[in-house]
Amino acid sequence: MSHINSDKGMDSGEYKHAMARYVWGFALSVVLTLAGVVIAGGGVFGASLAWSIVGILAIAQLIIQFWAFMHVDLSQEARPDLYLVMFTFLIIILMAAGTVWVLADLASRMGMGPGGMTGM
């Protein structure tokens, strides 16, 4: 991404635009991280609600960092990158959720899952 890192061959408008994207990305990341810390440490929400909110904040930050720093957005040029990112998420979800599903299912049959022997 040499056209972003150097100002050669880039007029000042483009440069400002690219710079603004980095600054926005950084600022939003800081805000979202601090929000997560406050929610986790604040004790205002119950445990499970706090987990969910922090999880959502994490995903939001992931998307923002892809947009601001990796230049993955909805534009036509970034489409192949976007597809790859989406495919990666699909595979990770398949593997992680699949593993949890299989192992929890096995555990329930072994009488060691949630509920223990009562599940039999």
Partner: peptide, 21 residues
């Protein structure tokens, strides 16, 4: 390529999962 990530359990059908899985 995509479906190949969705079938791995068929290598251990007999490991003890429930029938619907």
């Amino acid at each position: 390529a995509v479906l190949s990530f969705t079938v791995w359990v068929h290598h251990f059908f007999t490991m003890g999962q429930t029938a619907h899985l």
